[in-house]
Amino acid sequence: MTIGLEEFLIVGSLLFCMGLLIALSKRNAIGVLIGVEVMLNAVNLTLLSFARFTESAQPIAGHTFVVFVITVAAAEVAVALALAILIYRNRETVDVDQFTLLRS
């Protein structure tokens, strides 16, 4: 059996759902970030497999997209870690359940 587009897309969607599950269920802010990274990599896998396996007018667009997703994700994580450190200094925890200062 040859591995084609379908298999890659299935793996991609499973990864995406796992990432979403992690991001929504983790209580630690770093854990949420890891979930987001998994989701972004699922997106990258999906984009690359589409670019590789389909008759596309613009196959390069998929590859370009992936490079930008990786770059922007790195920038986002840098800011996220800075904010997480800031919060840790303020209250010695990065547990999102403890972020209850802002409530009505």
Partner: peptide, 24 residues
Amino acid sequence: GLKYLLLGAISSAVLLYGMALIYG
């Protein structure tokens, strides 16, 4: 700031998946 960023990151990942499907 952190709440905004975490939820924003999750939402942009969902958006990207939608974009990937449109591209595909």
